[in-house]
Amino acid sequence: METKIDSMELVYAKPETLTDTPMHYCPGCGHGVAHKILMEVIDEMGITENTIGVAPVGCSVFAYMYMNVDMQEAAHGRASAAATGIKRVLPDKFVFSYQGDGDLAAIGTAETIHTVNRGENILMVFINNGIYGMTGGQMAPTSLAGMKTSTSPYGRDCATMGTPIKMTELIANLPGAYYVTRQSVHTPAAVRKLKKAIKASFEAQKQKKGTCFIEIVSNCPSGWKMTPLESNDWMEKNMFPYYTPGDIKVPQEMK
């Protein structure tokens, strides 16, 4: 279908702060959307030159190849600790960490809790797909009750494996947490909401308010062994009742 674009105005293009490097993510993976929206907000706020991101270990280990801001790679689980150091040395920069659930809620649990408890003035982005995506779909602390993974082939048994950890509710209890929200990227409406949350977080960071924490409930079509559309559907039916999208802690002045 050929249509003339000469007489039309451009209404949406890939954000400039996202590089042209093709992403290595599996088709339909939420990581790509999350990267894009984060960069879009940075573009719109005009803070590309003033932002430093910290990439994790996990599928998004190469985030620095796609995010065209200054980036630092961290050891597995330690992104928020690395971001702490960066923010303290360069307090006028906008600093964010970006981590999966295996990274943030398993090996990095201590760093996550203490970063928020100190109220570090950073944005923590937490991609929760209920699984270790990169290494082959092993069970994560976030895997749902009964969820079949490569290391829980009969389903997660909470009696022996614990119940899925709600990291976001947990850290919201800490006084250092300023703004805590759970979002998703699977529909246009969800993407628009996430955009607002990211913008609000960077605005709060500018005012040195404390830690902003955004969980993004996301899909892992490969790990869940589904098509991208099936995975988003499954996520809505199974992940959302437990990890329900919405704000968890909103300061009075932001309401």
């Binding site: 039309m8 105005e9 949406y12 954000p15 339909g28 790509g32």
Partner: peptide, 12 residues
């Protein structure tokens, strides 16, 4: 908005 690979440009 939902394209994970940012492959779509829109005109109006």
């Amino acid at each position: 908005l939902v394209c994970p690979d940012s492959a779509i440009t829109v005109y109006r």
